[in-house]
Design a protein around this nucleic acid. Structure first.
Lengths: 260, 260
DNA sequence: CGTGAATTTGAGAGCCATCAATCTAAGTGG
DNA sequence: CCACTTAGATTGATGGCTCTCAAATTCACG
C-alpha cells in the first residue's frame, strides 16, 4: 500500500501544500516536518474510492498529483460533490479529529497520494504548535470553501454556478502554478461538473455553449480557456477572498492577467 | 462591551459546549479551562451583526443563549444563511486561525454571548493539547454541517429541504436539552427558513402547509411539533451521523422517542 | 382598536429536469 | 484501413417545481 511509485526529491511531495495562501507558505522546517510525516505514497486509478463514509481511519491523505473529490451519494442514486481537491490539498485531514468521515473520498483522475498516519499528526500536535495551527487553518479553508459552495447553489442560476466554479478552479490552480490565470487543464466531464453545480449534464452542455457564445470561455476536452475573467467573475459573483490567497494570486484570479 | 448581564454560576456558560457529542462531553477540567477563557459576556439584540465579513478580529464568540447565524449577502440583495448556531456553539471559533471571516455573524434573536480572546486560545493551544483537539473537532463539526447543507440544496426539493432542516434543528436542540425529540421552540420566521433552505417565504408557507396536511409537523409562531419524526427524516433524507451525536441522542433524532 | 409584521392564497411565468435521439471522438479488432 | 463500440457531448420537445407579483388575512402589540 505504500510502495513509492517513483523516487521523489525532497519536498516535491509537499511543495503545493498551502502554496500561495495568505499567512505565507510553509517554512522550510515545517515542510521538512510535514514531509517526514508522510509514511509513503500510493497511486490510485480514476474512479477508485480512497475512503468510504463511516469507515474508521487512522491516516490522512495529502494529494500529490491528480484530482480527488469528496462526494455523497444521495438516496435518488445521484452523486453530489461537496468538495474537489488539487495537488497540495489534504483531502481528509479532518479524519484526524473526526475518525469517521461523513462522506466518501474518491479519485476523479489517476492520482498519487501521500499517506500521513495519525500518529505522526499526534507528534506534530504536541511538538509543533505553529505547524498545528497551519494544519488547523487548512481544515478551516475547507469549511470556507464549503460555505461558498452553499452560496453558489443558493444564490446563482446555472450559468452563474458554472462560471463561479470555473473561476474557483482557475484561482486554486493558479496558486499551485497550474494555471496562468486564463488557461488550465481540468480533466472533468460535463457529468462531473453537473455533480459539482447540481445540474444535469444536459444543462451543463447548454451552459457551456452559452458561455462560449458570450465569448467568456471555451472548454474542449479537458482544456479550459477563460477569455474574459473579470466578466466571468461578475457572472459567478466570484470573490476569491474565501480562498485566502496571497495578494498577487488573488489579483490574478479576478483579472486573468498578472504574474506570480 | 463585557459587562456581565447577570451573574452566572460556574459552568453555566459552557454547559452546552460539545454536550452529547460523540467523543464524550468535556471533562470537568476542560470545562474549567474553557470557562476561564471567557473574558466576559455580552447581550445583543435580534438583528445585530456581531462580526462583519473581512473585519479583523482578535476574539471568538461562544453562544450562551439565543440563536445566531452565519450569513452572506449576495449581489441580488438577498441574504443567505450558511450556518445557524445554538447555545453551546462557537459561532466564530474559526476566526482564531482565519483572523478574517468570509461571512457575517449575526444575532437572529436576542442573544447572550461569551467573549473568548484569541490570546486565551493561544494559551490553551500550548498548554492543553487534548482540549485543543476538541476545539479543532468543533470547527470540523461546522464543516460537516456545511457539507450537509450543500447536499440539502443539491439533492432535495423544497419540502425535503424544510424537512431536513427541521430534523437537524430537532437533533441539535435535543442534544442541548431544548427538544424532547418531537417538540421544540424555534424563533424563526418563514423568511428566515427561506434563507436557510434557499426558498422564498411564499414557498416556505406552502411547504409548511403541505407538511401540516401530511400530518408530519406543525409550526405555529415559534413552536414546532414534529408528529412523525421517522417519516420527516425519510422525506428530508436526514441521517444525523454528520452531527456526531452520542448514540442516545442520535436515536432520539430519528425516532422522536426515547430518553437522554 | 389601529398598525405593521408575518402568513396565506392565487395566477402566471421561467428555469431547468426529463426523455429521447443524434453526433463526435477515440479506441479496438478484424 | 475500416466497421464496430463506447463514452461523452449536443440538440430538441415537453413538463414541473418554484419564483414573481399581487392581494387578502391573521397575528402581535401598543
Amino acid at each position: 500500500m505504500s510502495d513509492d511509485a517513483a523516487p521523489m526529491s525532497l519536498h516535491t511531495r509537499t511543495e503545493n501544500v498551502l502554496r500561495n495562501r495568505t499567512p505565507g507558505n510553509l517554512t522550510r522546517e515545517e515542510r521538512d516536518v510535514l514531509e517526514s510525516a508522510i509514511s509513503g505514497t500510493r497511486v490510485m486509478r480514476a474512479g477508485q474510492i480512497a475512503v468510504r463514509q463511516g469507515r474508521e481511519v487512522d491516516a490522512s491523505t495529502v494529494l500529490i498529483e491528480g484530482l480527488m473529490t469528496r462526494h455523497i451519494d444521495a438516496r435518488d442514486g445521484r452523486r453530489h460533490l461537496v468538495g474537489i481537491y488539487l495537488p497540495g490539498d489534504f483531502v481528509d485531514l479532518h479524519a484526524y479529529a473526526l475518525k469517521r468521515l461523513d462522506h466518501d473520498v474518491g479519485a476523479l483522475t489517476d492520482v498519487t497520494i501521500g499517506i500521513v498516519p495519525h500518529s505522526a499528526l499526534e507528534r506534530i500536535q504536541t511538538d509543533y504548535p505553529h505547524l498545528t495551527r497551519r494544519l488547523w487553518f487548512l481544515t478551516l479553508l475547507d469549511a470556507a470553501q464549503h460555505r461558498q459552495w452553499v452560496l453558489r447553489l443558493a444564490s446563482l442560476n446555472a450559468i452563474g454556478r458554472v462560471a463561479h466554479f470555473l473561476c474557483e478552479m482557475n484561482a486554486r490552480l493558479a496558486a499551485i502554478g497550474r494555471s496562468d490565470g486564463e488557461r488550465f487543464d481540468l480533466p472533468m466531464t460535463q457529468v462531473d461538473i453537473g455533480e459539482v453545480c447540481s445540474l444535469t449534464n444536459v444543462h451543463v452542455s447548454r451552459v457551456l455553449r452559452e458561455l462560449r457564445e458570450l465569448g467568456l470561455c471555451t472548454m474542449r476536452a479537458s482544456s479550459v480557456e477563460l477569455h474574459d475573467v473579470p466578466r466571468l467573475a461578475q457572472l459567478g459573483n466570484f470573490d476569491p477572498h474565501y480562498l485566502y490567497l496571497n495578494d498577487a494570486t488573488a489579483r490574478l484570479a479576478v483579472s486573468g492577467k498578472g504574474s506570480l
